[in-house]
């Protein structure tokens, strides 16, 4: 039985793989079917994952094992239920309270976190002595790091129209951004191609046994 189910599973994987790849030719019913199944499966996967990793250990298990000791957890539980009230039009306004708490908390957390890790630490990391490098390439690199950061930040300054001489740092900033986008593009290409190789390997090795 176990062998039959693993063979069935293999053929199911092959069917889904070909159904998705069929989109390269044109949109078709097989692709649409696989796409919707993917949406359904991933939604359920994350729901189950959420239930077992967040809701169960942080709320339900605590309330069931020691209700009196964790009675304060009824507050987020009620707030969560108020969030679900959004489904019913008449009680929709109740969801504003948990949303406001979530938005307020996340605004506070992000403000502090980004100010510390992204703003202050990045600025201090850029304040380096460019001549401190051991080799010429590091010294040049340090200069590029300082110039690129300053010009890049200047490019994102939209409060004043950038024209004439003030447009020069902005232009340099764009060049640095383009280099960074190129690097990210290269990494994305490599990641996607490795996924493609993985799928081809599955078809040729696990399914057809053409390669070892």
């Amino acid at each position: 039985m176990s062998h039959f189910m693993s063979v069935l599973g293999l053929w199911m994987s092959v069917f889904f793989t070909f159904s998705i790849f069929s989109f390269l030719y044109k949109d078709n019913p097989f692709y649409k079917l696989a796409e919707q199944i993917f949406v359904g499966l991933s939604a359920a996967y994350w729901l189950v994952y959420l239930f077992y990793s967040i809701m169960l250990p942080n709320l339900f298990t605590k309330l069931i094992s020691d209700f009196r000791g964790n009675i304060i957890l009824l507050i987020p539980a009620v707030l969560g239920l108020m969030m679900l009230m959004r489904i019913i039009p008449k009680t929709q306004w109740l969801s504003r309270f948990p949303i406001a708490i979530m938005i307020g908390t996340s605004a506070g957390i992000s403000m502090v976190r980004y100010a510390k890790s992204d703003l202050l630490s990045q600025i201090s990391a850029t304040m380096i002595n460019p001549f401190a490098g051991e080799t010429t390439s590091i010294v040049i690199g340090n200069f590029l790091l300082i110039i690129g950061t300053i010009c890049g930040v200047y490019y994102f300054y939209f409060s004043k129209k950038q024209e004439g001489i003030s447009a020069v740092p902005s232009k340099i900033g764009i060049w640095f951004l383009m280099i960074s986008f190129g690097a990210s593009f290269g990494y994305t290409v490599m990641a996607r191609v490795s996924l493609l190789i993985g799928r081809l390997e599955f078809l040729l090795k696990d399914w057809l046994h053409i390669i070892n």
């Binding site: 605004a107 100010a115 790091l145």
Partner: peptide
Amino acid sequence: EFPNSAAQRAIMISAALGIIGSSLRII
């Protein structure tokens, strides 16, 4: 290590400024 880090830093600093601004507006 260098040009890519410089651009990433510029993006991070600018995005952090934007996030701080919008967080303040929400609070």
